[in-house]
Design a protein around this nucleic acid. Structure first.
Lengths: 151, 151
DNA sequence: TTTGTATATCTTGATTTTGAGATTATTACA
DNA sequence: TGTAATAATCTCAAAATCAAGATATACAAA
C-alpha cells in the first residue's frame, strides 16, 4: 500500500496548484499595487505594455496576449483612447483590422513609469536567488506549455 | 561590462514574472473549465472548497483565504445559500461573526465533483514529473512567501 | 460572380468584483 | 460606567468582465 499510514493523503499536483495560485496572487498583488499608483488598472497596463514593447498591434492580438475577451478589449481601448494614451488606426490592407498605437503622450508615460514597474516586479520576486529564478523559469515554462496544450 | 553584446537586455525577474503569469493563466484556464462544467464559477467553487476542507468558517476568513473583497463574499455566499449548498450560522460568542457551513446537499455535491476536479488539476499540471513538481513547489513557496512579506 | 465560411471588431445585457460607507457588535481604557 | 477604537458584515453604486450576437470584411470554392 502506498498510503497505509495516518498522514492525510497528499497529492503533489494539488499541492503544486495551490502553491502556484498563492504565489501568483501575492506577486501580482505587489505589482498591481504599483500599477494602480500610476492611475491604471492591470488590464490597462497590460495593453499599454504590449504596445510599448511590440509596437502597434491589432486589437485582437492584444487580447490574445493578455487573455481578455473581445468585448473587454473594446472597452479598455476606448478608455485608453479617451485618456489619449493610444489611438486606433485602421489597417489599410485588411479593413476588418484595427491597430492600437501608442500616442506620443502614451509612449512618454510608459517610459516614465516602466522603470518603477520593473523595480516593483524585481521586489516582488526578490525571494529567489538568480539561480533559483532560472530554475523556476524553466519549470514554469514547461508547466505552462503543457497546460496550454491541454486546453 | 555585463551587457556589451547585441542581445536585448535580459532581466531574470521580468522573465520570471511573465512566465509565472502565463503558467498560472493556462493552468487555471484548464481547472476553471472543469469548474464551469459543474455550474459554478471559480469564486463559488473556492468558497465551497474552503468549507469542504476546513469545515464551517467565518465569512471574513473565507474572503481572506481566497482573496476577495467583503462585498464579494456577501454576494457569493448569498448565491450559494440560494442554491442551498451552504447556510449562514450566526456565531454565539461574537455576534458580529457569521459562519458559513455546507448543507448536506452542499457536502454531497462537493463529494461528487471533487474527484473530477482533482483529475482536472492533475491533468493541468501534468507537464512536470513528480520530482519537478517537488522542485516547483519549493521554489513557488519561497517566492510566494517573500512576495507576501513585501506586501 | 455568387455563395458560403471565417475573421475582426463592436454592441448589448448580464454577471462579477470592487470600494466606500453604513450598521452592529466587541474591546480597551479613561 | 461611558467613550473611542476596532472589527465583521452588509449595502450600494460604479467599474470590470464576459458571452452571445450583430456588423462588416476577407477569402475560397463553386
Amino acid at each position: 500500500m502506498s498510503n497505509n499510514n495516518s498522514q492525510p493523503l497528499r497529492n503533489d499536483s494539488l499541492d503544486l496548484f495551490v502553491v502556484l495560485s498563492r504565489s501568483y496572487n501575492w506577486v501580482t498583488a505587489c505589482t498591481n499595487r504599483d500599477i494602480r499608483r500610476h492611475g491604471l488598472n492591470p488590464t490597462e497596463f497590460g495593453v499599454l505594455e504590449v504596445l510599448f514593447h511590440k509596437g502597434p498591434q491589432p486589437l485582437q492580438q492584444i487580447g490574445e496576449k493578455i487573455l481578455i475577451s473581445s468585448g473587454n478589449i473594446t472597452y479598455v481601448v476606448d478608455k485608453l483612447e479617451k485618456k489619449q494614451l493610444l489611438v486606433r488606426k485602421p489597417c489599410a490592407e485588411d479593413r476588418r483590422v484595427i491597430f492600437a498605437e501608442l500616442t506620443e503622450k502614451g509612449h512618454q508615460f510608459l517610459s516614465e513609469i516602466f522603470p518603477d514597474h520593473t523595480k516593483a516586479v524585481e521586489q516582488a520576486v526578490s525571494g529567489l536567488s538568480p539561480e533559483e529564478k532560472q530554475q523556476a523559469i524553466a519549470l514554469l515554462k514547461k508547466l505552462g506549455r503543457a497546460a496550454q496544450e491541454q486546453f
